[in-house]
Nucleic acid binder design. Structure first.
Lengths: 351, 351
DNA sequence: CTGAAAGCGCTTACAG
DNA sequence: CTGAAAGCGCTTACAG
C-alpha cells in the first residue's frame, strides 16, 4: 500500500504539496498537480481513511439507526438513505436496535461517536436520556417519523392519513367499523400507531359512529400479528363490515384470516391498509400510500446539507404528503360481488 | 472529549500504562488498573476510533455488500449479519449495489479499503476483475449464495431445492407444468435463477414430462414481475395446471394474476414458490423454505472467526438445508375445492 | 510492572 | 506556489 510519502517522492515534491494537489486544497501549480496525480495513479494511491480522519476529524460516514432492518418500511428507508449517501461519496454505518437490549447498548455505548459525521434515525421516539446521549455526538441528525427539537425531520401526517383511510370506509356507507392498530405497550414506543388511532377516532367521531371495544385489536405490525388481531375481532358477537388496519403488512394477515373463515373481501368485509407496501398493488389492497423512499432520501439529504454547511444550518421539518389508493379490498356496504370476482368464461383446465 | 493523556494524568500514570490498563493488554498491576479505570469513568473517556485504527490497523467493522437492500431476502440477510456483528461489538458498513453504475463504482473505488476488517457479500457472482479487486482488500470475506475460491461461503442447494419443488407438483399428478424463473440477461448476473431452472429441468426430465417454451417465462423477482410473467404464460393456447415460481415474491404476483383472470388457486392452477418469505405463511403459499437469517448469521460468524484467528483460518463452505412447506396453493391435479375454501356456516353480515 | 519514545499516515497552519 | 514541522490520539516494542 503506497502512502502519501511514496507519491510525494515519486513526484519529487513534499508530502504537503502532494496532499494539497490530491485534494484540490490550497494552491498548487497545474504542472505539479499533474505530476502528483500521475504518481498517485501509478502507485494506485488511496489515502488511508483512519489517518485522514484522525487529521481532519471528518469520517465521510453517516450512521443510520433503525429498529428491524428486515421490515419493509425500514429496509426501504435504508435503501433510500444509502442511495443518497452514495451520490455524495458517503459511507453508511447501520445500527439495528431490534431488541431492547440492543437499544440500551446503543445509547449507553454510543458506537457512533467518532465514527460518523451525521445520523439519521428511523421512526424512533427517543427518551430524554437518549436525546442527550445523541446530542453528545455533536453531529447533525435527521429523524424520519419523529420530531426532536434541534434536529431535522421528515414525516407524514399519520393522524390525517388515518382519518382519510377511515373516511373512505365511512364514505362507502360502512357503519360497523373495526380497527387493527398497534400495541401501546410495545417496547420500542413507536409514535405512529397512536397517531393513526387518533386519526381513526377523529373520523368516527365526526361521523357520529360508535366503535365497540371488541372491534379494536392490536397487532405487532407483521402479517402474522394482523391475522391474529383480525381473528380476535371476528370472535365478537357482531362482526364489522369494514376494518382499518394501521399497516399493510397487518392488513395482508387480516385479509387472509377473513378469507380463511370463509368470508369474502370486500363483499363481506372491506379492508383498508396503510403504507402502500410493494405487495399492496399485486394484492389489490386498498391503502393510503406514503413514500418511504422519498422520506428517507430527504432525511439523508438534509443531514448531508447540514454537514456541508457546518453548524450554521437550522433544522428543517418536512411533511410528505400521503394519498388514498383505492384497489380491490374495499367496497360499498352491502355491495354484491364485483363482476371480475366471479368465474369468467375463460379457458379452464380439464386435466 | 477526554483523551488518553487526560486519563493518564488523572490516574498519575503514563499514557502507555493507561492504554494497557484500559485494554487489558500487557501487564498492569491490579491497583493501577483500578485507578486508571476510575479516571476513565470519571472523564467518560472513550478512545477516538480513528486514532486507535491508525495505530492498530483494525477497524472493528465488517462491510456488507448487497444488491437491493430493500428486498426481503437481502434485508433479512442484513439483519442476520448485523445481529451477529453486534454481539461481537463490530460495526456494519453497508454498500448497496442497486445499479450497474453503483456496482462499478464500488469495485473501482473500493470504498471498503481500510474501513473494514472483513466483508460479507450477498448473492453476488463476481467477475474475475471484481474478484481480484476484492482480493486486494486483504481481509477475510464470506459469500452468501456464491462460491469464490479462498473465501468462505454459505448457501443452499438451489438446484436440489428447485427439483424438490417441481417434484411436489409432479407428485400431485400435474403433467402440464410451467416455470417462472429469472431473466438470464439480468445485469447483476445472479446465480440462483439458473440453478433453480436447472433443478426444474432435472425434475421434469426425470418424470418424462415436456414443458413447452410458452410455459416458461422470466420475472425480475418482484411481485409485479411475477404477475406479468404469469399473464404471459396464461396467454398460451393451452394453460398449465401447475407452476413453479422461483421466488415467493414473484409467486405472490403470479397467484394474483391467476385470480384476476377468474381462475382459482389451487383448484385450477397450483402454485409453488421459493424462499418462505415472511408473507408466505399468512398467504398460504406452498413453497420451499430457505433460512436466510441463518445463512447470513453463519456467514458473519465465519468472517468474525477468521478475523479473530488471523490469516491462518481456512475457508469454510457450508450448505444450509431447505425444506418443502406445503400450504394452500397446491393441490392434486383435477382436485375439487378443499372444504375450508367453501362458505362455512359462520355468522354473516347483514348490514 | 511502568515509562519514554517512536510510529501509524494523513493534514494544515506557518514561513518562505 | 511549496516545504518543514507539528499535530491528530492512540498503541507498542523496547528499556528499565
Amino acid at each position: 500500500m503506497a502512502t502519501i510519502a511514496d507519491v510525494a517522492a515519486h513526484a519529487g515534491v513534499s508530502k504537503s504539496t502532494a496532499s494539497r494537489a490530491l485534494r484540490g486544497a490550497g494552491t498548487v501549480s497545474a504542472a505539479t498537480r499533474r505530476r502528483v496525480q500521475h504518481a498517485a495513479d501509478q502507485l494506485a494511491f488511496v489515502a488511508t481513511p483512519s489517518a485522514a480522519r484522525l487529521a481532519t476529524g471528518r469520517t465521510h460516514t453517516v450512521a443510520v439507526v433503525t429498529p428491524f432492518v428486515c421490515r419493509w418500511f425500514f429496509a426501504t428507508a435504508v435503501a433510500g438513505i444509502q442511495h443518497e449517501l452514495a451520490r455524495s461519496g458517503f459511507d453508511l454505518l447501520l445500527y439495528d436496535l431490534h431488541q431492547p437490549a440492543a437499544r440500551e447498548r446503543f445509547f449507553t455505548q454510543m458506537p457512533v461517536r467518532g465514527r460518523a459525521d451525521g445520523a439519521v434515525l428511523l421512526t424512533l421516539p427517543v427518551s430524554e436520556a437518549e436525546e442527550t446521549a445523541l446530542a453528545g455526538l455533536r453531529v447533525p441528525m435527521a429523524f424520519v417519523g419523529d420530531i426532536v427539537p434541534g434536529s431535522s425531520s421528515v414525516r407524514i401526517d399519520d393522524r390525517g392519513a388515518a382519518r382519510l383511510a377511515t373516511r373512505h370506509l365511512l364514505n362507502l356507507g360502512h357503519q360497523r367499523l373495526a380497527l387493527i392498530g398497534g400495541d401501546p405497550s410495545e417496547p420500542m414506543g413507536f409514535a405512529a400507531p397512536a397517531q393513526r388511532r387518533a386519526g381513526f377516532d377523529d373520523a368516527i367521531r365526526e361521523a357520529g359512529v360508535v366503535v365497540p371495544e371488541a372491534h379494536v385489536a392490536a397487532g405487532d405490525f407483521t402479517a402474522a400479528g394482523g391475522a391474529v388481531a383480525m381473528s380476535q375481532i371476528l370472535a365478537a358477537e357482531r362482526i364489522p363490515t369494514a376494518v382499518f388496519v394501521a399497516s399493510d403488512e397487518m392488513a395482508f394477515g387480516a385479509v387472509h384470516t377473513i378469507r380463511q373463515l370463509g368470508l369474502r373481501v370486500p363483499q363481506d368485509i372491506s379492508v383498508i391498509g396503510f403504507d402502500d407496501h410493494e405487495l399492496a398493488e399485486p394484492f389489490g389492497l386498498t391503502t393510503v400510500r406514503q413514500d418511504v423512499y422519498r422520506q428517507a432520501h430527504a432525511a439523508a439529504r438534509s443531514v448531508l446539507d447540514t454537514i456541508a454547511a457546518g453548524e450554521s444550518a437550522s433544522p428543517r421539518h418536512r411533511v410528505v404528503s400521503t394519498e388514498l389508493v383505492v384497489r380491490d379490498t374495499t367496497a360499498r356496504a352491502g355491495e354484491p360481488p364485483s363482476a371480475h370476482r366471479t368465474i369468467p368464461p375463460h379457458e379452464r383446465n380439464t386435466a
